[in-house]
Amino acid sequence: MESLPPDFWATSRAYTPHIYRDQYPFIDPASSSLSQAGKTIIITGSSAGIGARGIVPAFAKAGPKALVLVARNLAALRTSEAVIMEINPAIEVLLIPTSIADEAAVTNLYATVRTTLGHADVLVNNAGSNADVAMIGESSPAKWWTDFEINVKGTYLMTRGFLQLLGRDQKGTVITMNTELAASVVPSWSAYGVSKIASLRLVEYLAAEYSNVSAVSIQPGVVATDMVGESFKRFAQDTPELVGGMCVWLATDAARFLSGRFVSANWSVDDLQKQKDRILASSDLKVVYAGIFGLDHIKATA
């Protein structure tokens, strides 16, 4: 890690000819093309980090009908609410302190949304855990499993509840925060990496099972938050605004061709749209088990 250049994670995994480390015009959430007018947006992990500094302000600038903020700390949620009111006081804000790994709590969350707002159009699964950075043999089983409780079970429960509220007839969007470590093996990060690849696969299942839902995983780059380990801090040059703008763009119809795929906030959305046909015709940006399989293929290449 020490020998890698500071822009390694942004450049080595580039899929588009252009990459960005900060918000740019195509993902400006105040742009009319990214408008979320009339929509209700649910954002987990909205009291701190990328959620509070990037995703919440971005959706507020996009002018939705309502924002539902979810996290465990009510006082911190009120701080995020104040940010929204400063940007656009016309937005209805619903604060729901919730542990997303608690099934009963998530059920109550969606009951509150249904009673208060009637429906929801977009879910941003931003809450995440990185509880145990350690080699497997030295790891704590309880801490190691915490990442699965939040990153897998919590994401599943929030997504399940959203689908039940949405129904089969209405279009919806589910954006799930992920990480480059879902596609890479970095020693000591097994809990986080393995739980995140499970989350990645969950999004692919969601896209396959629900044609009315655009389901996308997003890698936020490396943003300076409390979850960034010491060894990654020098790579943390991406801004929360970059991630927030990308999430708003992913909630538009222009991004629905990416359903079931894993994208990076660093990639140019203009370039992605130009590569739409290639993406749809391939397994690009999906979990792939590589190799030559099937006896006919093996015999043909022998």
Rank of each mutant, 00 (worst) to 15 (best):
Q23I: 13
V122E: 02
S268I: 00
T159S: 10
A198L: 11
G161C: 06
R72H: 06
L123R: 00
S31T: 12
V68C: 07
I55R: 02
S140E: 14
R160T: 08
R234W: 06
S195A: 11
M158H: 07
S80E: 02
P25K: 03
Q275I: 03
P57D: 04
E92H: 10
L163A: 06
F26D: 10
S195N: 14
Y210D: 13
K39E: 04
A105C: 07
V106P: 06
V122Q: 09
A58F: 01
M1Y: 13
P97A: 02
H297L: 13
A131R: 04
A207M: 10
V243K: 02
I19M: 10
V56E: 00
T146C: 10
I197V: 05
I292C: 07
L285E: 11
V223A: 03
A10K: 06
L280Q: 09
M135H: 05
A30T: 15
I43L: 01
W145Y: 08
N108W: 11
Y205F: 14
K65G: 02
S211E: 13
A207H: 14
A82L: 05
S3K: 15
G49K: 00
L77D: 00
I91K: 03
I19L: 07
D284G: 04
S184W: 09
V56K: 00
A14F: 07
A134N: 13
H297P: 11
I55Q: 00
E2R: 11
F235I: 12
S12Q: 09
C247A: 12
E103I: 15
D169S: 09
